[in-house]
Design a protein around this nucleic acid. Structure first.
Lengths: 155, 155
DNA sequence: ATTGCCTTTGCAAGGACATTGCGAGGCTTT
DNA sequence: AAAGCCTCGCAATGTCCTTGCAAAGGCAAT
């Protein structure tokens, strides 16, 4: 794990909130000169702490207001089956997150959709992925909170 | 809903992948002049399609490799109770997502943590939020896929 | 405490970029 | 067909990014 001092934390915390901030503004916020600030940001990239920058869209504005949590159980828990499913699920663009779970369910998936009929389409895709035995869907009625800013405490 | 043409889609799709792209590079990718491209990007901001830009961090690199899905049931489903819980959950920085769910569970929450002991701390916080009756936790064994790029199909 | 080494900083300059105004072209409406 | 509107490309100004270099700070060993 990479050592991060207080200024690094300030940089990361700020860039998580305002990724498009100019370097001069960022430098002023964290209390560094432009060059020193830019070097630290670059370093955080090279060390892999910052993976990438992304514009975030309003899901409603582009016609994808729906969120569905899908729990997928596979037929067998063989290694090759897991890989086949995992590779296949990456090709479904509506799938935003996928986690291998402990407990009675194999995968937890978050899917974005236009509406209920649109989810039927995605549902059919998911049930046909390799190794899938059961698919259990839970619709979200409303998004209460969606955050991209990871908490940066003292490590 | 805002009307988006093919170029808008290209802009959004590109900025979702590479939010730090310079305007000149973006203009070349989408096949526009710099000024025209910049105006469209600005417009997408003003219309609320693009909400903000964010740097994305490697959760492992900053010591938060764990993901826990938490299902929270409230005591009563009164409007005021929902609001109290929702406002309180926003103040828990480890909570990255929170959805009001249909079905037998009230809220679905995704939490990031350092490890199991760290989750105990967060668990205690969550159980003490206003109106909480039951908290059911599911640890993710592994992150298979985490995407920030929403699918932009023909609407 | 002092020396030496290494890291990180601030300053300055050149080059790249963002941002505005202006006129031209295309599309829709009447 | 003509008018109006929207969006485009071009050009110029101001801001920002980016690199080199010398100085200051932190750390370890003596």
């Amino acid at each position: 794990m990479i050592k991060l001092d207080k200024i690094d934390h300030a940089i990361l915390d700020t860039l998580q909130k305002q990724g498009k901030l100019s370097n001069v503004e960022l430098a002023e916020i964290v209390g560094l000169s432009e060059s020193a600030c830019l070097r630290r940001v670059k370093n955080l990239h090279e060390k892999g702490v910052v993976t990438h920058y992304a514009a975030h869209l309003d899901a409603k504005a582009i016609g994808l207001p729906g969120t569905v949590f899908v729990r997928v159980s596979l037929e067998k828990q063989q290694e090759e089956r897991l890989n086949a499913f995992e590779e296949a699920v990456k090709d479904v663009p509506e799938v935003m997150e996928c986690y291998l779970m402990g407990g009675d369910v194999d995968y937890m998936i978050r899917v974005v959709v236009k509406d209920a009929p649109d989810y039927e389409r995605v549902h059919n895709i998911l049930t046909r992925l390799p190794g899938v035995a059961r698919v259990h869907s839970s619709f979200a009625l409303r998004t209460v909170l969606k955050r991209t800013r990871l908490p940066l405490q003292k490590s």
